[in-house]
Design a protein around this nucleic acid. Structure first.
Length: 538
RNA sequence: GAGAGUGUAGCUCAGUCGGUAGAGCAUUCGACUUUUAAUCGAAUGGUCCUGGGUUCAAGUCCCAGCACUCUCACCA
């Protein structure tokens, strides 16, 4: 059998002494010690990488079974144990008050990763953890016998081990499996991080997500919550009869958003392809085809900078509802978010980055123009005043469309101050090339963005379904961009699709990673993405 | 892409004015049959991110590079 290569917890895996026993000669290298113990475990007839282990009692269930533990008196009476919620309880005293007798608990069969270990003469206390909980094992030489005790002495922190025994309480009241039989599942060959501090190096936590999940407290809960949130989002849409689809991730023309795409190439067709930057244009094609309520929850890719709020690949929800409009989508957005909150619990009043956010529906709704005026004192419709104000902020105004200037001011002065949740509604039309204008005011687009803690979480429109106007807006958007800068190219097939009649509709996009951030209290997007993009070490 | 910070033992971190490299945990040995980050005694463990420079002397000062973090920009 070939032994796996010796990688270390170090940033430079080539650093450090050889970890093969007998070669390194360094008896204090934890990796050497672990391999030495692995050999001894093997010599005792155990497989250091284990095999199938059926009928496990999950530790969460074992904790639930604690109430089944009784104290059996000498007379044979079974009495309930005292409440361990009481911090003043002296269980040792309580037991001695009962006189002679013993605890009787159910027999369990458990396994998990060794998180803590204390040897005390002929006793070993081990805390193991599985993904439902953790529990203490009591291993006494007399109780398990010479052979199992010898095995237990070869255990290391991080090993996966199993035990069978009765559930009980130690003198201090700690719920404990009093082992009668031990099992060995898998040896951890690399040394684990500090047993108390865990793995705190942010870089290593992301590079070695396995170690982050295995040895740190929060990450498992965050990622399980992420899964729950995504399931809840699907459930909300499915309950509304939305149809989930899978659009192409390889696009000939990456459209539907303003972002640089990743470029790739198809060999057989000898054709350039780009990774999608949005889901929009294909979902709209499906609405033309008659999928009246359609959504996709999937990965999109944008070749842009990284930040605590940006990862090059991220998960996006886009949903389209025929015969709706942006108001329809506001209601849907509220339902999606509120249902997700109820799924993971914790109530509508939540904290993020030190701010309390109240998600009790309905969320606030304010127009772009009102927020603009409130923050700047300038009437957004007064072009001259807006330009003057922009110049006072030091913004370049020459040759820019007035709406672009407005939006720069808005982003500068308003967005960061929006604690939310708040729907900002009715955007200047010319910055919304895929949006239908208000019937009574063509300057204003029927669009909203949902802001929470200054972060854009959702974006929705009353969708533009006029093919001629759509084509014209695309052309305007492409004007002035040179070949290099041009992020979007005219998608003629999309225009043709619109000519086949797309129903009036509301469309919604939600940044799922950001939603998970807000709902789980994680300040960095990298803490809600299992494997964020990282530069390789080497 | 710009600015600031960080990089020291397997992990978490100290390191003063430039003068022999430190602690806790982990590891190894010893004691301990109800421990709680067990405790106690001993030992071991270093390419101080990399490469240059200044200096009698550099973990420490200077320059360049690499990686990460934060802030900003692009963006959702």
């Amino acid at each position: 059998m070939q032994l796996p290569r010796n990688d270390t917890m170090n940033q430079n895996p080539n650093k450090g002494p050889a970890a093969t026993p007998g070669e390194g000669e360094d008896a204090t290298d934890p990796r050497v010690a672990r391999r030495e113990k692995m050999s001894q475990i093997e010599a005792m007839g155990y497989d250091p990488f284990g095999s199938r282990f059926d009928n496990r009692d999950m530790l969460g269930k074992c904790i639930d079974k604690a109430s089944e533990i009784k104290f059996k008196t000498e007379a044979g009476d079974l009495i309930d144990l005292p409440s361990f919620d009481d911090p003043d309880l002296d269980y040792r005293q309580w037991k001695s008050d009962q006189g002679p007798g013993e605890e009787v608990g159910p027999t369990v069969r458990v396994s998990g990763r060794i998180m803590l270990m204390r040897t005390k003469g002929k006793l070993i206390f081990i805390n193991i953890k599985d993904w439902t909980g953790s529990i203490q094992l009591f291993i006494g030489k007399q109780q398990v016998g010479e052979e199992d005790f010898a095995l237990a002495k070869l255990f290391d922190l991080g090993d996966l081990v199993g035990a069978e025994g009765r559930l009980g309480r130690t003198n201090t009241g700690e719920l404990t499996v009093f082992a009668e039989k031990l099992y060995f599942h898998t040896k951890m060959l690399d040394p684990p991080p500090d047993k108390h501090a865990g793995l705190t190096n942010v870089d290593l936590r992301q590079r070695m997500r396995y170690a982050d999940l295995a040895f740190n407290e929060g990450p498992m809960e965050t990622f399980v919550n992420r899964t729950k949130i995504i399931k809840s989002v699907r459930a909300t849409l499915d309950a509304d009869d939305f149809c989930e689809v899978e659009g192409p991730t390889l696009h000939v023309i990456a459209g539907g958003a303003a972002a640089r795409p990743f470029e790739t190439h198809h060999n057989a067709l000898d054709m350039p392809l780009t990774m999608r930057i949005a889901l929009e244009l294909h979902l709209k094609r499906l609405m033309v085809g008659g999928m009246e309520r359609v959504y996709e929850l999937g990965r999109v890719y944008r070749n842009e900078g990284l930040s605590p709020r940006h990862n090059p690949e991220f998960t996006m929800l886009e949903a389209y509802q025929a015969y709706g409009d942006y108001e329809t989508m506001m209601d849907l957005t509220e339902r999606v978010i509120c249902n997700a909150i109820e799924t993971i619990g914790g109530g509508f009043k939540r904290e993020f980055a030190g701010q309390e956010i109240d998600f009790t529906p309905p969320f606030k709704r304010e127009t772009y123009a009102d927020l603009f005026q409130a923050a700047t004192g300038v009437d957004a419709a007064d072009e001259a005043a807006v330009t003057k104000y922009a110049q006072s902020l030091g913004l370049e105004t020459k040759g820019k469309h007035p709406d672009v200037i407005r939006n720069e001011i808005f982003e500068e002065k308003v967005e960061d101050t929006l604690e939310g949740p708040i729907f900002v509604i009715d955007y200047p039309a010319s910055i919304c090339p895929l949006t239908k204008r208000k019937r009574d005011n063509p300057e204003i687009a029927e669009r909203f963005e949902l802001f929470i803690c200054g972060m854009e979480l959702a974006n929705a429109y009353t969708e533009l379904n006029d093919p001629d106007l759509q084509q014209q807006l695309f052309e305007t958007q492409l004007e002035g961009l040179d070949e290099e800068e041009s992020m979007a190219k005219m998608d003629h097939d999309f225009i043709r699709a619109l000519r086949h009649a797309m129903p009036p509709a509301g469309g919604l996009g939600i940044g799922i990673d950001r939603l998970v951030m807000i709902l789980t209290g994680q300040k960095s997007i990298r803490d809600v993405i299992l494997f964020p993009v990282l530069r390789p070490t080497e």
